[in-house]
Design a protein around this nucleic acid. Structure first.
Lengths: 114, 114
DNA sequence: CACAAGAGAAACGCTTGCGTAACGATCGGC
DNA sequence: GCCGATCGTTACGCAAGCGTTTCTCTTGTG
């Protein structure tokens, strides 16, 4: 079910969603952090630091730091992989799911207004 | 011409666009900076620091700093308003237009793939 | 059981962004 | 002409992000 957008609609959608999100929520995630968060919630688990770094083509410390920040915000959680204790498994949280749910609503509502 | 999106489509669109943008371009604009940039390019001029601050509901130094950064990247330009020399008029640039054009293409292409 | 390889975190020095407050330049009404 | 108000910038101390490098813990393979 493809969605056909004109250039004006595409940027307009991004514009109004960004604007609303900035006005509503003081948590100013970077594009990288947002990409990581969405990767965690939209792609089937398990998620590891290494896997996320490869998916975004960034270094591992970038992922570690982003998880520190978003962990402090309650958006994600971490736990050791008991089967291979070198790995860390990144887990979703209720608050993170709610955050993205609201964000999705924002996109949907702005899409309707186009 | 409204665009109807399911929650999965909405977040999926944001996800793939963010992911692509992170992988393609090392310039990691914050959500605020992106909102300012789109405001400048999508809303009819003139744009002032004060006007942008009000539109995004942030303080003026936030705008000044974002303009410093994006100015250094060549995405926007500044010039004094000769009619009221207290004001600064924010202007678009060719590079900024190209940047957003590519970004818009990214959104359109990902929209088609939904 | 020794040891290289792998995963994630921590350390380091640096850059950038933040909010608040103060500042210089300019305007407009009296 | 003066003087309060307005506009944008700068200063300050602080928090957060960056890339590179180093470290610790764990694995598994000889």
């Amino acid at each position: 079910m493809p969605v056909e957008l004109t250039p004006s609609q595409a940027l307009g959608l991004w514009h109004t969603v960004s604007l609303e999100q900035v006005r509503i929520d003081s948590r100013d995630l970077t594009l990288r952090q947002m990409a990581i968060l969405l990767q965690i919630y939209l792609v089937p688990p398990p998620h590891t630091v290494r896997g996320l770094a490869a998916a975004l083509d960034v270094t591992k410390p970038v992922i570690t730091r982003a998880l520190d920040t978003m962990g402090a915000l309650g958006l994600v959680d971490r736990s050791r992989d008991e089967r291979d204790r070198r790995n860390v498994i990144i887990k979703r949280t209720l608050e993170g799911a709610l955050y993205l749910e609201k964000f999705g609503d924002l996109i949907i509502n702005q899409g309707r207004k186009l």
